[in-house]
Design a protein around this nucleic acid. Structure first.
Length: 729
DNA sequence: TCTACGACTATTTTT
DNA sequence: TAGTCGTAGA
C-alpha cells in the first residue's frame, strides 16, 4: 500500500478524523449540511484499505444516486492512486440488480429479465386493470402504482397483505397480484421489486446470505436518512451481528418521507445496533455564519431532532435579502434584475441558482431570463431516457434482445402505425392471458390459426421478420449499428418527421445522441463475467441511468426544485415563492409531520448557499388560474430578525392588508413608468360578481395595479385591476 | 386512423 | 390558466 495514514488524515478536522478512524463496530455519523460528509466516507474507505489493510473486496458502499456513487469511486481511486474495481460501490438499486443478475436462478428470474421504469410500470398496471375488467375511474392507475410500490417498500407481497375483509384493499391486492403474475411471467422487475427481491434472495437462502455476510465485513451507507424500510432491512440483514456498519446522514435533511423514506432508521440506529459510536460533524465549510444562523433558526422549530448546530469559521457575511413582491411577475422581475446586477459584478451565471418548491414556478422565471438573454439551465423534467422517441427505439431494442418482452411489444407493435389497432391488440392480449404466454408468442399462434384479419396478419409477419433481421444483422454486436438500423428500418424517423419541425428536430437530435450513447457504452467486467451481451448490458445500464447530461460549454444559471438541489451548493441562491400554501405547500400545512418535512426542505434550501441568499414572496399570485392573495411563508419569520435585510414588504402577517400600501417596487416602475391609475382610495366601485365596494388600499402600477376592495357583500378582496374590470360609475 | 373537443387536474422524484 | 388524456365522430 503506497499511502501513509497521515495522508489519509490530512486536512480532516478532529471530528472528521475521529469518525474516519473509529474502532467501534458500528458508527453513526451525523453530518450537517456542508460538513464534509462525502469526504468522511471517502477517507473512511481509504482508511480501511490503506491503514487497516482491509481488502476492497470486503467493502460495500451504498449511495442513492449514480452520481454520488461515481464521485465516490473516483475520489477513492484518486486518493489511493489505485484501481478500486473490486470495491462494491453503487446505488441500492444497482447493487440489488447485480445480486439478481448473479443469482437469476435462485431469484427465480429468467436469465434475460428486464427492468420496468415507472412509466412502463404504469402502462402495465393499466393493462392489468383491463385484464380484470376494472374501471380506471374507480381504480386510478396512479393510486394502484402507489399501493404496489408502498407495499413492496414495506417488504409485502400481495399474498401477505391483510385486507380485514375490506373490499377496497381486497381489490387493490387482487390488482397487485395480477401485476405480479404478469411481471413474473414476462420476466419484468420494477424498481421496488429489485430491492424486495434482492432482500428475499438473501433472507430465504442461508448459504447465499452467509456468503455475502462473510464477504462484506464493512458496509457503508450514504444519506442514511433517506432509506426506506426494505433498504434498511437489506443493510441490517447483510451486516448481521458481526459486520461493521458505518452510516452517514443528517436527520435535518430528510425530505423524502413521502416516498417511503423513514427518518426513524437514523433515529433508531443506535438502539438497533449495539456498539455504535456517534459522531457529529457540525463545522460547516460551505456557508457564511449568517446563512448558517438563518438555517439553524428555522430548523430549531422542529421537534424530535437528534440535535446539531452548524457553525462556520468563515466571516459573518451578508445579511439575507428578503423581497416582498406584489405579484409573481414582480417577483420574477426582481430576480431577473438582481441577477443582471450580479452578472455585471463579475459573478458567473453558473454560480447562481434559483430554487423553488414546485416545477410550475419555473415558467415565469424562464420567460424573464429569456427576455434578458441570461443563459439558464433547468434541472428536472423529462430525463433523456424517458423521452418518447428514446423509449420507442429502446422498445425495439428490447424486442431484439428478448421477443417475449411484453412491455416493448405493447409500445411499438403499432408505432409507427402498421394497422394493428386496438382490436387486434386486444385479441393478442386475451389470447396471451388465456394461454399464459408472451404477446409475441400469442400473436404468432393467432397468425398461424388464421384468427387475425389479413391486414393484421401480414403486418405482424412483416414486423416479425423486421425484428428477426435486426437481430441477425446484429451478430457483429456493435450497438451503434443496431440502433442505427432500428431507427432506419422501423420507419420511426419518418414517423417523427410528421410532427411540427421544431419538435421533430429535437427528436432526431436525441436519436443521434442515443446512437452516441450506444457507441460509447462500455460493457463492464462484471457484466461480461455474467455473460451479458453488449445489448443486454446496455439495456440494464440505461434503466438505472437518469441520463442527465451536464451542460458544459457556457455557464448557465441553474433552475431547480428545492428537492433536486439537495447535495449541491452555489455561491448565490434565490429561494422564490416563499409563501404560505406554496412553501410550506398547502397539502402539507395541516399535518405536523409534513410541515416538519417542509421545514427541513427549507433548511436544505438555505444551506445550499455559500455567500448570498435572496428570498422572495409575492402578496398575490395566480394559482390554478385564480389570482390568490398570499401571506409570506412562516419560515421567513423563523429566521432571526437581525439576519434579515428586508428589501420591501413585511414578512410579519398582515394586519388588514396594510402592507400592500408601502413603497412601490423600484422594479415595477421600470415595467410601467408612471401610469396614472383610474382608481383612488376611498372610491366606490362595482364588480360583476362581488357587487359594490370601496377601495381601501392600492399597490403596484399599470398592469400590475392591485386594489384592496372592501365589498359590502363579501368583505375584503385583493384584486388585480387589469382583470377585475371594476366599474367606477 | 386521425382529429377535435370536453373533462379533469394541478407537490416534491431517484432508481 | 394550461396541459394532458380519453372518447366520439369523420
Amino acid at each position: 500500500m503506497n499511502i501513509s495514514t497521515e495522508t489519509i488524515l490530512n486536512n480532516l478536522n478532529d471530528d472528521q478524523a475521529a469518525a474516519v478512524t473509529t474502532e467501534a463496530q458500528n458508527a453513526l455519523v451525523l453530518a450537517g449540511a456542508g460538513s464534509g460528509k462525502t469526504r468522511v466516507l471517502v477517507h473512511r474507505i481509504a482508511w480501511l484499505i490503506g491503514a487497516e489493510f482491509i481488502s476492497p473486496y470486503s467493502i460495500l458502499a451504498v449511495t442513492f444516486t449514480n452520481k454520488a456513487a461515481a464521485e465516490m469511486r473516483n475520489r477513492i481511486a484518486y486518493m489511493l492512486k489505485q484501481d478500486v474495481n473490486n470495491l462494491w460501490i453503487g446505488t441500492f438499486h444497482s447493487i440489488a440488480l447485480r445480486l439478481l443478475q448473479i443469482h437469476t436462478e435462485v431469484a427465480k428470474l429468467p436469465k434475460n429479465f428486464q427492468i420496468l421504469d415507472s412509466d412502463d410500470q404504469y402502462r402495465l398496471i393499466r393493462r392489468c386493470l383491463g385484464d380484470l375488467e376494472l374501471d380506471e375511474k374507480q381504480w386510478p392507475p396512479r393510486a394502484i402504482q402507489g399501493f404496489i410500490n408502498d407495499n413492496k417498500n414495506e417488504g409485502l407481497r400481495a399474498d401477505e397483505i391483510e385486507n380485514f375483509g375490506d373490499f377496497n384493499t381486497q381489490t387493490l391486492t387482487k390488482i397487485y397480484q395480477q401485476y405480479e403474475n404478469h411481471c413474473q411471467r414476462a420476466g419484468l422487475v420494477d424498481f421496488a421489486e429489485m430491492l424486495l427481491r434482492a432482500h428475499e434472495l438473501l433472507l430465504n437462502n442461508d448459504q447465499l446470505l452467509h456468503k455475502y455476510q462473510m464477504r462484506f465485513s464493512h458496509i457503508l451507507v450514504d444519506e442514511f436518512q433517506d432509506t426506506n424500510n426494505i433498504q434498511s432491512a437489506f443493510i441490517q440483514l447483510l451486516a448481521g451481528k458481526n459486520n461493521k456498519l458505518f452510516v452517514v446522514g443528517d436527520d435535518d435533511q430528510s425530505i423524502y418521507a413521502w416516498r417511503g423514506a423513514k427518518v426513524d432508521h437514523i433515529l433508531d440506529f443506535q438502539n438497533l445496533n449495539n456498539n455504535t459510536a456517534l459522531y457529529k460533524l457540525e463545522q460547516n465549510y460551505r456557508s457564511t455564519q449568517n446563512i448558517l444562523d438563518a438555517a439553524n433558526g428555522v430548523i430549531e422549530h422542529n421537534k424530535n431532532r437528534l440535535g446539531k448546530r452548524l457553525w462556520s469559521a468563515q466571516e459573518q457575511g451578508d445579511k439575507i435579502n428578503i423581497y416582498g413582491a406584489h405579484s409573481e411577475f414582480d417577483e420574477a422581475f426582481y430576480v431577473g434584475e438582481a441577477i443582471e446586477q450580479l452578472l455585471r459584478d463579475t459573478i458567473r451565471a453558473d454560480e447562481i441558482a434559483i430554487l423553488y418548491r414546485s416545477n410550475a414556478q419555473s415558467r415565469l422565471l424562464e420567460e424573464t431570463l429569456i427576455k434578458r438573454q441570461i443563459p439558464y439551465q433547468i434541472y428536472g423534467g423529462l430525463r433523456f431516457f424517458e423521452r418518447m422517441e428514446i423509449k420507442d427505439v429502446m422498445a425495439y431494442a428490447r424486442l431484439v434482445n428478448n421477443r417475449h418482452d411484453d412491455i416493448g411489444f405493447e409500445r411499438v407493435i403499432n408505432t409507427p402505425t402498421r394497422g394493428m389497432g386496438l382490436k387486434t391488440l386486444n385479441m393478442i392480449r386475451n389470447h396471451a392471458q388465456i394461454n399464459q404466454t408472451s404477446l409475441w408468442q400469442s400473436a404468432i399462434s393467432l397468425v398461424k390459426s388464421g384468427s387475425l384479419s389479413n391486414r393484421a396478419a401480414s403486418s405482424f409477419t412483416a414486423f416479425c421478420s423486421m425484428i428477426d433481421e435486426l437481430d441477425n444483422n446484429h451478430q457483429d454486436q456493435i450497438l451503434s449499428h443496431l440502433f442505427h438500423d432500428i431507427i432506419e428500418r422501423s420507419a420511426l424517423k419518418d414517423h417523427y418527421l410528421k410532427e411540427p419541425p421544431e419538435k421533430a428536430q429535437t427528436r432526431l437530435e436525441n436519436l443521434d445522441e442515443l446512437i452516441n450513447a450506444a457507441e460509447t457504452h462500455q460493457i463492464s467486467d462484471e457484466d461480461a463475467a455474467l455473460g451479458l451481451s453488449p445489448l443486454a448490458s446496455f439495456l440494464a445500464a440505461v434503466s438505472l441511468d437518469a441520463g442527465d447530461r451536464d451542460n458544459e460549454d457556457e455557464p448557465h444559471v441553474q433552475l431547480m426544485t428545492l428537492h433536486s438541489a439537495k447535495g449541491l451548493e452555489f455561491p448565490i441562491v434565490f429561494m422564490v415563492g416563499m409563501e404560505q400554501g406554496l412553501f410550506p405547500h398547502q397539502n402539507s400545512m395541516e399535518d405536523f409531520n409534513k410541515l416538519q418535512e417542509e421545514r427541513r426542505l427549507c433548511y436544505v434550501g438555505i444551506t445550499r448557499t455559500e455567500k448570498k441568499l435572496f428570498m422572495s414572496y409575492a402578496t398575490s399570485r395566480r394559482l390554478r388560474g385564480k389570482i390568490t392573495p398570499c401571506q409570506p411563508s412562516q419560515f421567513l419569520r423563523e429566521i432571526p430578525n437581525q439576519l434579515v435585510q428586508q428589501q420591501r414588504g413585511n414578512i410579519h402577517p398582515a394586519r388588514h392588508h396594510r402592507q400592500i400600501i408601502d413603497s412601490a417596487s423600484p422594479y415595477q416602475q421600470q415595467i410601467q413608468p408612471n401610469t396614472d391609475t383610474p382608481y383612488h382610495i376611498g372610491q366606490t366601485v362595482h364588480h360583476a360578481s362581488f357587487g359594490e365596494g370601496v377601495i381601501t388600499d392600492m399597490s403596484g402600477k399599470g398592469d400590475y395595479l392591485q386594489v384592496l376592495v372592501q365589498f359590502n357583500q363579501v368583505g375584503p378582496k385583493v384584486l388585480a385591476a387589469k382583470f377585475a374590470k371594476l366599474s367606477t360609475n
